[in-house]
Simulated assay, not measured.
Amino acid sequence: MQFQIGDMVTRASYQMDIMFRIIRIDETDQHEATAILHGNEVRLIADAKMSDLVLIQKEEQLTREKDDERKINESLDLLRQDYQLLREKQEYYTSGQYQHQEQYFHMPGKVLHLDGDASYLKKCLDVYERIGVPVYGVHCHEKKMPSVIDSLLDQYRPDILVITGHDAYSKQKGGVNDIGAYRHSRHFVETVQKARKKIPHLDQLVIFAGACQSHFESLIQAGANFASSPSRVNIHALDPVYIVAKISFTPFVDRINVWDVLRNTLTREKGLGGIETKGVLRVGMPYKKDHEST
C-alpha cells in the first residue's frame, strides 16, 4: 500500500494503540522505506517500516478524535471548577471578608508556549483561548530552542514558560538514565538551563518542560518547576496546558499542591511531576467596563 505524508496510521507491531500522522518518509534504505511519525494525541515521535503501518480509516479516526475530545472536555470542566473556587476564595480575602458592591478584575499569568509541533501548538492555543489564559505561541524545532530562548524571554517577558514538542526514549541507544538515549530531552534541558540562567527564581518564571518519555529528573535538576515523564510514558498533547492553566489561575499568595495540578491532566503522576510552586494570578479592583468613563 502506498502511504503519503499526512496520512493517519497506527503500527501493527504495537497493537495499533496510538494514532500517528506521517511527517516524513525516509527512502535511504534500499530494502524498505521508513516513515517518521508524530503522535496525533500524544507528544511522541517514532519511526516505523512502511510494512508495519496500518492506515486509519476516516470513520475510525473520527471515533478516536471524539473520545479524545470527551477526555479533554472532562479535564476542562475540572479546571473551570477549580478556577471558580479559587476566584471566590480570593475575592473573599481581597474584600477583607466584607460584603460590598465593588467588582474585581483578574490578571492571570502570561504564558510563552514554545512548541516543536505546529499542529499541537494550534491545539494548545485553542484551549488556552477557551479557558482565558493569555498566551504567546511560538513554533520552533526542538534542536533550535536553546538558541532562541533568551531573545524570546526578552521579547515576551512571560510569567510561565512552556518548552515542549516531541520526544522518545530508545533503549537501543542507552539506559533509561542516559540522556543521550532520548530524542530531544537534552535540547529541552539546555533550554531550561538557559532560561534559568536569565531568570533564576523558581517563582519569578515558572517552567514546564518535556514531552513523551522525556528525562524527567534532568529537566527538574535543570530548573523546571514541572516536567515529564517520571515513568517514561507518553503524555497527552494538551497536558502542558492543564498544568499551565492551574498555575496561571492560582493567586500568587498561594502555593500549588503538586497533586492538585496533576489530577486535571490526562496522564497524571506517571507522565508528569513537579515541585511546590507559587501561583501567578493577581486580583485588582475596581473593575471598569469599557463603556464607563475613567
Rank of each mutant, 00 (worst) to 15 (best):
A245W: 02
Y242I: 08
F249L: 15
G223Y: 01
I199W: 03
F216N: 09
I207E: 12
C212I: 14
C212Q: 07
V206Y: 07
Y242F: 15
A237I: 08
I247P: 09
A211W: 06
I243Q: 12
Q204I: 04
P240M: 02
L205V: 12
D239G: 04
I247K: 08
G210I: 03
F208H: 12
R232C: 02
I235N: 00
I243C: 13
P230Q: 03
I243A: 13
V233G: 00
E217M: 04
Q221K: 10
L202F: 07
Y182L: 01
R183H: 14
G223C: 11
P240V: 03
S248M: 07
A181S: 14
G210A: 12
Y242T: 14
K194A: 08
F252A: 15
S248T: 01
A181H: 04
E190R: 15
I207L: 12
H187I: 01
V244F: 04
F208D: 06
H215L: 11
A237G: 13
Y182W: 06
Q193F: 01
L219H: 00
R186V: 11
P230C: 02
V189H: 00
P251K: 13
R232P: 01
I220P: 05
S248L: 05
L238Y: 05
N225M: 00
Y182P: 02
I247D: 12
I247S: 10
S214H: 14
L205A: 14
F216K: 06
K194F: 00
V244S: 10
A245G: 14
L238Q: 05
T191F: 02
A195F: 02
G210V: 08
S231Q: 08
V192H: 09
V189S: 02
A224T: 05
Q193G: 06
A224C: 07
I243K: 03
E190W: 01
I220T: 07
Y242D: 11
Q221M: 13
I243H: 08
S229H: 04
S185D: 10
V189A: 08
T191E: 08
A222G: 09
N225W: 01
D239H: 01
H215K: 09
F249H: 15
P251R: 13
A222T: 06
S248N: 13
A224R: 12
P200C: 07
V189E: 09
P251H: 11
P230A: 03
P200R: 06
P240K: 00
V244D: 13
S231D: 02
R186S: 09
P240W: 00
V206S: 06
L205D: 15
T250F: 11
P251C: 10
R196D: 10
N234H: 03
L202K: 14
Y242G: 11
L219Q: 15
V241P: 10
R183Q: 12
D203N: 15
F252K: 14
H215I: 03
I247F: 06
K197E: 14
G223V: 05
S248W: 01
S185G: 07
G223T: 09
